[in-house]
Amino acid sequence: MLSAVPISWFLTLSAVLFALGVAGFLFRRNIITVFMSIELMLNAVNLSFVTFSYHYKSVDGHLFTFFVMVVAAAEAAVGLAIILTVFKNRGTLNIDDVDSMKN
């Protein structure tokens, strides 16, 4: 069944998802949205890993996917904690307002 779908479709979907993630990351100002964009990019990459893994009949891609998922989970935990602290301290989620490193 899957074989009916050409590999390029999966890769295209992955690329589109990644591009969406990048766009969201670049153009949205809400930290949460930015954060979700990052997750989107990670999962786009996961998709291409799985695709190639299936295509080449190799387990490496799957392995990497698990790694990425673990890292993403950790990142979500730390990232959300940071976001909460930022919101507590500054009362804003606008990413452009968090620039105290400047100067």
């Binding site: 930015v34 452009d96 620039d99 105290s100």
Partner: peptide, 14 residues
């Protein structure tokens, strides 16, 4: 380069 603006960093990464 170091504008302190996260989105400009992201643009540079891209």
């Amino acid at each position: 380069l170091q504008s302190g603006n996260i989105r400009s960093y992201a643009a540079w990464v891209l």
